[in-house]
Design a protein around this nucleic acid. Structure first.
Lengths: 237, 237
DNA sequence: AGTTTCAGTGTACGATTGTACACAAAACGC
DNA sequence: GCGTTTTGTGTACAATCGTACACTGAAACT
């Protein structure tokens, strides 16, 4: 027989012998993907059960234990993978040469593409970033912080905002990341194909980034000087 | 409202035993509070069970059905209550007279106080805003949008950012609200008593708001003109 | 007073959960 | 080739879940 699995497996796997560790990695990947798939249907990660994930992965519940001690541990691996995805995004963005016209809009486009391509991962981190178990939340926060720091470093390397102290620069990048994640949420539960809403949303996204980038240039100035009167009332000190 | 009796008779006002409808409202409130309490310990709302909530409320599971059809319905009520809390915050903020010195910092202080005072509600909305069931998420998004719109209206009434078109103003307020909610998360899982970290976080919060408010003043200008060179590369077109 | 209403109780049932244990068989080291 | 590892299976069990039904007792109504 092909496999020992009694229940039908639709996976187009190689019937010939995979190495044992390769097969293990495969079902492990299946379990991870199963969890993501289940969350694709509006489910929260913390509400997922071990049996449920195993069932979705086409595996008997007990097999789960061969790979993860519990669902939380699987979640941590998902966070780690999402982190890798994020860093890949940053590497892509780094490839974009300095300051072509419409760079901001292009960056937003790249990001949108990235979110769509890795939809489930972004669903996961968006959903669990402030949501589920404390351990997971902390792990995600770590990844996001890591991402933020790398972005700040990129700014430094490009000679952007050189006048800002590192702490401020990190805060600015933190805002950018926050805005990006919020935009990811918007991208994610945007209706199927709605180019009008999508364009509107992306335009909003661009404007928000502009606000941040503009505001950041004034961060170390003395507030209240040379400022439009409308902002005056808000920016004392 | 005291007596929910159809004919609206005067309440007997029995000192010892409460009126029937009052007692019902009480256990209803207990159920709502029980759900919040359970989430206080890092639990996600979607992971809460009907029985669990009833148990925490000191009530037999079936009693739950006398008040809510299912847990989702209870969640919606929680969202509604959180919305009321949010609007109360806005009403407080409105009371603050125009432009005293350090107004931004004072607003942040008021907000921090509000978050701490209504801790569990903020835990709830922060946690479920991008987390749990779709219905709940939508309901929360509605409340937040409502809040944002009211804030924009306040800006208008105070004559702030009069040069901005309404759509832009709403976007700016959206950013402010986003920042507020992110700060709420920070406030919430800040370690017990850590005045140093707390001060640092609040200062960050203030700076972020400044960035937004500053950036917003430049929103309708032609970008790339009169801008610091560092920002130039980011803000073409 | 007698009657009705209804928030809350008690019991019960089927489904699902996490997990323990023994076992099968394929891949591996020798 | 043979014994050992290791991945996945099958069975089992206690706990918990949501929910249905009949019931109670006190408040509310007539």
């Amino acid at each position: 027989m092909r496999t020992a699995t009694p229940l039908g497996r639709a996976a187009p796997e190689n019937p010939d012998s995979l190495s044992r560790s390769a097969r293990k990695d495969l079902t492990r990947a299946n379990l991870l993907q199963a969890a993501l798939n289940l969350m694709g249907g509006g489910r929260s990660f913390t509400s997922l059960g071990l049996r449920e994930i195993a069932r979705e992965a086409g595996v008997v519940p007990n097999a789960f234990y061969r790979h993860f001690r519990n669902t939380d541990e699987l979640g941590l691996v998902l966070v780690e993978e999402a982190g890798i995805t994020l860093r890949r995004l940053l590497r892509e963005a780094r490839k974009m040469d300095v300051a072509p016209r419409d760079m901001l809009r292009r960056s937003v486009g790249v990001y949108q593409e990235h979110v769509k391509r890795n939809r489930l991962q972004f669903v996961f981190i968006s959903s669990e970033r402030s949501g589920g178990s404390r351990i997971l939340r902390m792990a995600i926060r770590n990844e996001v912080t890591h991402f933020t720091n790398e972005m700040a470093q990129d700014f430094r390397l490009r000679g952007l905002y050189t006048q800002l102290p590192t702490a401020s620069l990190q805060m600015v990048c933190g805002m950018i990341v926050m805005t990006m994640l919020a935009a990811a949420t918007d991208i994610l539960d945007l209706p199927p194909e709605q180019p009008l809403l999508e364009g509107e949303m992306l335009e909003n996204f661009v404007q928000q980034l502009k606000i941040i980038l503009f505001g950041a240039t004034r961060l170390n100035e003395t507030f209240g000087v040379g400022t439009a009167p409308t902002a005056r009332a808000f920016l004392p000190d």
